[in-house]
């Protein structure tokens, strides 16, 4: 490991060491202050069948009758032993719920990440290399329209067109409903991924296109690019040659730093497409005031965003050697 990388990783790990407890306190405070009563959320429509004694018994079983500080200390103690607690909504250990649902979310987010990076960077490079001409105008218009489109609206639009009207693609779930896991073919899985991945990718593409285009234009206007142009380099050659590092380096850094937003977007996409991932579990945990699961997902998200930011910092330094001096 080179010195700058070791220095960077060590610094970020130290930051994580004080960030994690701080985030845990913040998360717990927010969940404790939330106006949703976990017992009421659990009881739901059966209010008339469950009396005050039973409610008290449920609250006591979940430890809700104890003061918040005591509950937090107990949760922290369990966490130190690797126990994130028991999910009320799924009636299973939080760690088990997260482990079961994380792969589905990661597949969605990972594919959307790769697809939006490839498409966003490519379109940004073409737009930058053809600045002011029709390909640039078309790509820019598309990017601005996408930037102004909320993710859930894009998801509904895709469902309306490709699932409802054309009937080409399924509108929900990770596999055909009613089928056993052993009966689901890889082709089925891919077909069910298309719309959620497309939704997440489309939302992430716009900022990438605009940033890549701008970074490339900044390079094309630089003395270094003019020097190459004076010796016969065309804008397209500059864009996909030396300009690639100038534009794609920035794009990758930006994309990795925005991985948290992609994860946030997956909550909406999973809700719309009934995708059995962590995003859907987050919605269920929030509406059910499932504090242990929300805490667990909150910490997992923090680690995900932390990893994204760390990788963004590494990508920036790999692309631009000048930054390695101030790791």
């Amino acid at each position: 490991m080179t010195a700058w990388l070791a220095r960077l990783v060590a610094g970020r790990l130290i930051r994580l060491a004080w960030l994690l407890p701080l985030a845990a306190v913040g998360l717990f405070a927010l969940i404790s202050l939330a106006p949703i009563d976990p017992v009421q959320a659990y009881v739901g429509g059966r209010t008339s069948q469950i009396g005050p004694e039973q409610r008290d018994a449920i609250a006591s079983a979940w430890g809700l009758d104890r003061p918040a500080s005591e509950r937090f200390a107990s949760w922290l103690g369990d966490l130190a032993g690797g126990d994130l607690g028991q999910s009320i909504t799924f009636n299973a250990p939080v760690l088990q719920v997260i482990a079961a649902r994380l792969p589905a979310s990661m597949a969605l987010v990972g594919l959307a990440f790769a697809l939006s990076f490839l498409l966003g960077t490519l379109l940004g490079l073409v737009a930058g290399a053809t600045r002011g001409r029709w390909p640039d105008r078309v790509i820019r218009t598309l990017a601005v329209v996408l930037a102004a489109s909320p993710g859930f609206w894009v998801a509904i639009l895709l469902v309306a067109v490709f699932a409802v009207t054309l009937g080409w693609l399924p509108a929900c779930c990770a596999a055909p409903p009613g089928q056993l896991a052993s009966e689901v073919t890889p082709a089925d899985r891919w077909r069910h991924m298309v719309l959620p991945v497309a939704t997440l990718s489309v939302v992430g593409i716009a900022p990438l296109v605009l940033h890549t285009r701008q970074s490339l234009i900044a390079f094309l206007d630089s003395p270094a690019a003019r020097h190459l142009s004076a010796h016969g380099a065309t804008p397209l050659r500059l864009a996909f040659g030396p300009g690639l590092r100038h534009a794609a380096g920035v794009a990758l850094t930006l994309h990795l730093a925005g991985a948290g937003e992609l994860f946030g977007g997956s909550v909406l996409a999973e809700a719309v497409f009934a995708w059995p991932g962590l995003g859907q579990a987050t919605v269920r945990a929030a509406t059910g005031a499932d504090a242990p699961l929300l805490m667990g997902i909150g910490l997992a998200t923090l680690l995900f965003v932390f990893a994204g930011n760390l990788l963004a910092d590494i990508a920036a330094r790999l692309a631009d050697p000048r930054l390695r001096r101030i790791a």
């Binding site: 630089s222 003395p223 270094a224 003019r226 020097h227 004076a230 010796h231 030396p242 590092r245 100038h246 380096g249 692309a319 631009d320 050697p321 000048r322």
Partner: peptide, 13 residues
């Protein structure tokens, strides 16, 4: 041409 400005060198290569 060997241009005047040292910034004619690509800083990332």
């Amino acid at each position: 041409l060997a241009p005047q400005g040292l910034d004619a060198l690509d800083p990332l290569a």
